[in-house]
């Protein structure tokens, strides 16, 4: 490798190592509380297990003691356990169809969960739009800076 040139070998070695880490993570990655797809991927049944629903869980219908949630293509009924009843009573008036929530729940049967912990992510949609705007602003700042030759 000549001096003064990019190191393709260095670049590829780092990417190769990184690829190996990603593969290791995908193969053996394990959280304290699994999601339903992760439990199924391990060949176990989710019924009776504590599960986590933390990404893109949307409320699609409100019920007296819970709600219907959708994550990806799956829809499930979420009931409220005694442990979180007071939290539910405080939160349910502000809860609306379309809100995003996070849950830790026990899977009672397929499509039926009993919430043990939950959080309503009010403002999540705003956060997504604001983040896109920030990304565009960052791209504009970087474009100007690189054009000025502030390179390294």
């Amino acid at each position: 490798m000549k001096d003064g040139r990019p190191s393709v070998l260095g670049f590829l070695s780092c990417l190769l190592f990184l690829g190996a880490l990603c593969f290791y993570s995908a193969r053996f990655g394990s959280a304290a509380v699994d999601t339903i797809p992760e439990i199924r991927a391990k060949g176990r049944s989710a019924i009776g297990q504590e599960v986590a629903l933390t990404s893109d869980v949307k409320v699609v219908r409100l019920l007296d003691n819970g709600f219907i949630a959708r994550q990806g293509g799956a829809q499930m009924e979420v009931t409220i356990s005694d442990e979180v009843e007071s939290q539910w009573n405080a939160a349910k008036h502000g809860l609306a169809v379309g809100d995003f929530v996070s849950l830790r729940a026990v899977c009672k049967q397929t499509g039926l969960l009993e919430a043990r912990e939950f959080h309503v992510h009010k403002g999540r949609r705003l956060k997504i739009w604001v983040s896109i705007a920030a990304l565009l602003a960052a791209a504009a700042i970087l474009f100007v800076q690189f054009r000025k030759g502030k390179y390294a």
Partner: peptide
Amino acid sequence: PLHTPVGLTLFCAAIAFLHR
């Protein structure tokens, strides 16, 4: 891994290697 210190160090090194 791309949101962890070890993964990010490797990614940053990969980008740095593309420079003189």
